[in-house]
Design a protein around this nucleic acid. Structure first.
Lengths: 111, 111
DNA sequence: CTATCGTTCAACCGGTTAGTTGAATGAATT
DNA sequence: AATTCATTCAACTAACCGGTTGAACGATAG
């Protein structure tokens, strides 16, 4: 249960940063080398991106694979399934709440 | 677009903390006074919970309503819909990725 | 073997965050 | 009006985070 929460902490923690969200999005579609990942973020150092990748790796949201000189990064589907399930839980909760609101608004409208 | 990202930052930032996730869960089902919200968290000060509520309020994930002495807290459905939509986006992305993995595994299995 | 390329590590910095304590505020009760 | 209850604010601290720089490391190419 505590591990569980820690994992959620790190997953949502990752998602709380715009650069990391962007990286996730990009490596979802194709495997990229660290250099390629870093290329678009011109305002940041290479090392900064390397750190972001480490954070994502620790949260198990991406995996790295070495091929010769290059280190390739891709989305890690297994852990993301877990994340997705939690997000689904929240989503359901919110939708229930929205449904309740809708009901309530209808009720008010009738008066 | 920047505002957009900032909002996501604050929403996911809220979700990155176990106490705040727990509070969200509890005020999703019923409206609670600040005192009631604080009650279960015996390791934290009242002020600490008050601060967490402020963070949630700034992210527009909860709203407060004053009724006499008491301040009641509940989930804020409107902003949560927005959050839910983003989560849905990520969820879709992840499911696509999972589907791709599944395809790949099938392909391997055939050999 | 050494030079080079791709990447990470270590040390550091400034800003933010989660927590504390104690004083301050707002509303109701007496 | 004074007291009490519910809550917030202000000031402070310790830890964490995102960033930088420069050195270091692992792997390949010459």
């Amino acid at each position: 249960m505590i591990e569980h929460a820690l994992r959620l902490d790190s997953i949502f923690g990752c998602l709380a940063d715009a650069t990391r969200r962007d990286i996730l999005k990009r490596v979802a579609n194709e495997e990229l080398s660290v250099t390629e990942v870093a290329k678009p973020y011109k305002k940041l150092t290479f090392a900064a991106i390397s750190k972001h990748l480490k954070v994502l790796e620790n949260a198990k949201l991406v995996v790295k694979r070495r091929q010769g000189k290059h280190q390739f990064v891709r989305l890690a589907p297994a852990k993301l399934k877990e994340a997705s399930e939690y997000l689904e839980y929240y989503k359901t909760m919110w939708e229930d709440r929205l449904d309740a609101l809708e009901e309530y608004l209808k009720l008010i409208a009738k008066k």
